Simulated scan of single mutants.
Amino acid sequence: MIKVWGISVSYYTGKLEAYLRYKGVPYVMDNPFACQDHIKEKAGAVQVPIIEREDGSFLSDSTPTIQLMEQEFVESGETDRMVFPTDPVVRFIALLIEDYADEWLWRSAMSYRWSNENDRELLTSILTDELTNHVKAPRFIRRRMVKKRQLARYVAGDGVTETTRAHVDETFLNAMRVMLSMLENRPYLLGDTPSIADIGMMGPMLRHYSQDPTPSTIMRNEWPAITEWVARVWNARATAGETSLLDHVPDDAAPMLREIAQTHLVQHRENARAFSAGQSRFEMTVQGCHYKNLPVTQYRVYCLERLREEFDDLSDEHKAKVQALLPYEGCDLIWDHTVQAKSGHDVERKAPFAHGINVV
Rank of each mutant, 00 (worst) to 15 (best):
R149M: 15
N293V: 00
L245F: 05
E117N: 11
S125Y: 10
G288A: 07
F353R: 14
V28Q: 08
K321C: 00
R143D: 09
Y27W: 06
T263Q: 07
P85L: 05
L20C: 01
L16T: 04
S280Y: 05
C331P: 00
C303Y: 02
L189M: 11
R153P: 03
L68P: 11
E75N: 11
A231H: 12
P64Y: 02
P49T: 12
T338C: 03
H248Q: 12
V146S: 08
L294I: 02
K15D: 07
G200C: 06
V178D: 04
F353D: 01
S125A: 14
E242F: 05
L265K: 01
I226V: 15
C289L: 04
K23W: 03
M201R: 04
A18Y: 02
P32I: 12
C331W: 10
P224I: 11
F58A: 06
V286E: 13
R207E: 15
L265N: 05
Q71C: 11
A238S: 12
M176W: 13
R107D: 09
R281G: 05
Y19D: 07
L304D: 07
I199E: 04
A101L: 00
G288F: 10
L265E: 07
V74R: 15
S343R: 09
T164L: 10
I334G: 01
Y299R: 13
N358V: 10
M284R: 13
H208W: 03
P352D: 05
A277V: 05
T65P: 01
R107P: 01
V146D: 13
R349V: 05
P49K: 07
E54S: 14
S60M: 00
D80P: 05
F84K: 04
A137W: 07
P250D: 12
K3H: 15
R186N: 04
I357E: 03
D169R: 13
P224H: 14
E130F: 00
F275Q: 10
T297M: 02
H264S: 15
G6T: 08
G77H: 11
R81D: 11
D119F: 09
R21G: 06
L246C: 05
Q267R: 14
D251E: 14
S8I: 03
